[in-house]
């Protein structure tokens, strides 16, 4: 597997957007078994099955060491690799200091 399950330690907050986007498109290309560009809307293109949305959440949480809360469930954030990159940078940057985990509070 080209994409490990360990979080990228240096993904936040300084990691480059390009590196994150590359990571994400790599995951998507593997998961959906076809090349996925940074702006491809894989939901709109009908490329995903019923379990993919959850799988994507789990991937993003593990790979970038963050927690997707219900408040983050603006599905537009999850539609393309570029948007996911923005989401990851938002979560791992400004929000990193008050990150919490589901069930911890």
């Amino acid at each position: 597997m080209s994409h490990g399950s360990e979080p990228i330690a240096d993904a936040a907050p300084g990691a480059g957007a390009e590196q994150i986007t590359e990571e994400i498109t790599g995951f998507l290309t593997d998961a959906l078994r076809r090349p996925i560009g940074p702006d491809d809307d894989y939901f709109e293109l009908g490329l995903v099955d019923s379990l993919f949305a959850l799988e994507l959440v789990t991937y993003v949480e593990q790979r970038f060491a963050l927690t997707v809360e219900v408040e983050d469930l603006d599905l537009d954030s999850f539609r393309t690799a570029h948007r996911l990159t923005e989401f990851v940078r938002r979560k791992t940057g400004a929000d990193a200091g008050r990150r919490t985990h589901v069930g911890d509070h």
């Binding site: 019923s50 379990l51 993919f52 949305a53 959850l54 959440v57 469930l73 603006d74 599905l75």
Partner: peptide, 17 residues
Amino acid sequence: IAPPGAGLSHVAATALD
């Protein structure tokens, strides 16, 4: 529970899992 749009792919999917 969760915003519209996430009812099946996230909420129901978590329950079914």
